[in-house]
Design a protein around this nucleic acid. Structure first.
Lengths: 214, 214
DNA sequence: CGTACTTTTGAATCGCATCAAATCTGGTGG
DNA sequence: CCACCAGATTTGATGCGATTCAAAAGTACG
């Protein structure tokens, strides 16, 4: 297990806006920790000890399936994981590393204490959760579409502004977010450009609508 | 537009556990309202007036795409919709009815007031959001799987207990939740039974694992 | 300049969506 | 009680689109 150490709060605001709102008392209790690919950080059934924010890399919530293989329940990059552990006495899943990375761990008792005693922090926490719910519902809706082109359009319409979006990631990882193979994504982008449905300019994607909405 | 009326709180607890925790002051401000298929209840850009809980039927958050067709951003049954409107001055999407149903509307000012003044309610609200985040992350993970059988297994392993789950809905609507056609679901269930991977007993689905985990 | 990763294109295969239709089910009214 | 209807369930046939495997070309970085 990698060593835990106190975080550098100046850098953390860039990862997640909520981290700027963490009260001093809770900051003192938080610890950063690097992790390595495959490492299991917390185990199902263990007493829930920490609320975790992924700073770099990827964490997986997994369960052993009846067949013995691991079922990935959740996959989180750049955000909080296992928020639900605030509710329960123990973790419902294993928390494993999907690649090297770094996390920020808040002891649950300190976190709950901060929520109870700092109304501004509690409000920021609720708003953060509400935004996450909205983002995830849109993501589910997108993954329910059954063609690559539809998912691309949905992404641009919903995540972008005015039929235009700037990609903040490689196309390969975008393909993973869209739930498709990267080959299928490249081909669909090409076809859509040929059909004049899409304009690609580096990281900037635009759907040239035929009219402007009021 | 259908008339608004005061709710019957005795029945509401069954819809959503959070509704039991609504403080009296907020209860007095809430109104139920029936809606009809296709009706547009709130429009994008309107001043955000209500926090909405779907009691029956289905509500859609939609946006007009550049092509003029409606993009479904979110789809909600039996729960809160547009929680993010607590944050913003106006709605980011149209809110339309996907079929007949009924909603419960809380005026935003009264809702915010209740969150600020009733710590127990605020805590219940945060926990509700955290559970929703967990549920949605699992749903996204499931929709990212590319075979019907994998999605079925994921559902049973994650939503069920001990490799077993009781379906609370028709298979047709389950298929929609899994993001597949109902025909594909029926065929996969049949094939999995034939292969001995799955045992179906009415609404009870079981994955007969070869060993019991400790 | 070499290594690792992304981007891009090609070809083969397979699973799912789709359309069609039969059967089954529960509920309604005559 | 039966006729009837709407919706769910089930099976069949067909075509398309995505996955997969393979490989080349481009790009970032030390």
């Amino acid at each position: 297990m990698m060593p835990a150490s106190p975080p550098d709060w100046k850098k953390l605001g860039k990862v997640n806006a909520l981290l700027q709102r963490v009260p001093d008392a809770l900051r003192g209790a938080a610890r950063t920790r690097k992790f390595e690919d495959g490492e299991i950080l917390y185990r199902r059934g263990d007493k829930a000890a920490d609320v975790i924010c992924v700073l770099a890399g990827e964490l997986l919530l997994t369960r052993a399936s009846r067949a013995g293989t691991a079922v990935i329940v959740q996959r989180v990059r750049d955000g909080f994981i296992a928020e639900a552990s605030l509710d329960s006495k123990s973790y419902h899943c294993d928390i494993a590393a999907g690649g090297d990375g770094e996390l920020l761990a808040f002891p649950i008792t300190a976190f709950l204490h901060a929520l109870q005693n700092d109304m501004a922090f509690h409000s920021a926490w609720s708003r953060q959760l509400a935004r996450e719910v909205r983002r995830l519902r849109a993501q589910c809706e997108r993954l329910s579409l059954n063609s690559v082109a539809e998912r691309i359009c949905h992404f641009i319409e919903v995540e972008g502004e005015g039929g235009e979006v700037m990609l903040g990631q490689s196309r390969k990882s975008w393909a993973a977010e869209l739930g498709i193979s990267h080959e299928a994504l490249y081909r669909a982008l090409r076809r859509m450009q040929d059909d004049g449905v899409l304009v690609v300019d580096g990281a900037r994607l635009r759907l040239p609508g035929n009219y402007i909405l009021p």
